[in-house]
Design a protein around this nucleic acid. Structure first.
Lengths: 202, 202
DNA sequence: ATTATTTTTAATCATTTGATTAATGTTTAT
DNA sequence: ATAAACATTAATCAAATGATTAAAAATAAT
């Protein structure tokens, strides 16, 4: 998963990340986490008080790690709108390849507890104060792309990136592809999605 | 949710559907279901033996209801490829509007138990023996759309339809829209998705 | 070296939760 | 009307699970 299994505390946190991501809060048992971490169950409560507090911690790190890496890309003042689209697609697909359980994990857990989890991260401002959204507006104004809802655009863009990971088990069953073949297909999308998105916008 | 709360058995099954769809298998307690159904807890086991058997039953009905309605649209011999795209998008968005928890429910539970659940429904044949895929191939051959992977096409199409529902809590938080405003946005997509999809294919 | 502090462990607790049981009530068949 | 079958309920069970405790081990401070 990540790294740094030096301290017991880190061992537990990393194990918790893995187990929570894979099974979700409700299905994850503290004994699963302890076993994955290779530590005594009591240490989980010793270091983190409760399953719930450990979960919140994991969730905060997961969310900020996941959305934090967006921030860098969409606020780069050096790149054009088109370049950001390309970097965003490729960067995000790589990121999710490394931790493929995260999208479904985030969506599932937010469903179960929208308010509490969402206030932990100001994703709204990240998006709406970004260079990216300003460049989108400029491109519309300059007639480079046709006038359209930024939200539709974002839904489409993120949906194209994320959906194959969320629907992977189902899509593999439909297609009959192996893990490697399916991953290769997703890999292709790093280049294809920007092309499709541009086609949709004109 | 559905209807027919005549018999106790149906009351329990419908309550189970609602609770499982909303919370998933692991987080759903049999007592939640009993309460939602307004019946004594023991009746759940009396009629359905166990939580797990009740869940499998709910899952089978959910999957066949969800994918069954696809079958009708994509195998209609009367409609063209383009018409199927329009009907599929509009029909599916309407369907999910009625039961918005289903996509995330299906994806989550399949992740937890891919083999066992997927063999219960031969989605693969539904798609690959459909009139729809034949018409796709024809359109490619006739040069109406450019040569491309059917699987990418399906991922894109389904992703555009389904993702706004899966990501709804997050997307609402990002956009700051109310429930009604967000639903109105999705409603627009019934017309927009076919346009986008066609743009992507050329 | 000795003491104090921190970490780890095995055992145990209390609650939750899926499931069963035995008694009671209700419907159906004769 | 009576018996048989079915449905419902309250009480209870057993296993799972999050959490705690008290003792032991390891580490740090003096």
């Amino acid at each position: 998963m990540e790294l740094k299994d030096s301290s017991t505390e880190d061992k537990i946190k990393n194990a918790a990340k893995a187990v929570f991501h894979r099974k979700g809060f409700a299905a994850a048992r503290t004994r699963d986490i302890a076993e994955e971490a290779g530590i005594n169950l009591a240490l989980l409560n010793y270091y983190f008080r409760s399953k719930e507090r450990l979960f919140v911690l994991v969730m905060i790190e997961t969310l900020s790690g996941f959305f934090g890496s967006v921030s860098v890309i969409i606020n780069n003042p050096e790149t054009t709108f088109e370049e950001k689209i390309e970097q965003f697609a490729a960067g995000y697909i790589d990121l999710i390849f490394r931790e493929p359980d995260i999208p479904l994990f985030i969506m599932s857990e937010i469903r179960n507890n929208p308010e509490q989890l969402l206030q932990k991260i100001d994703i709204r401002n990240t998006v709406f104060n970004s260079v990216f959204i300003r460049q989108f507006a400029e491109s519309v104004q300059q007639g480079k792309i046709k006038d359209q809802s930024f939200l539709h655009f974002m839904m489409n863009f993120i949906g194209l990136i994320v959906f194959p990971f969320i629907g992977k088990p189902l899509l593999k069953a439909i297609s009959g592809l192996t893990e490697e073949e399916f991953n290769a297909l997703i890999e292709e999308r790093k280049k294809l999605i920007p092309v499709w998105i541009k086609a949709m916008m004109n």
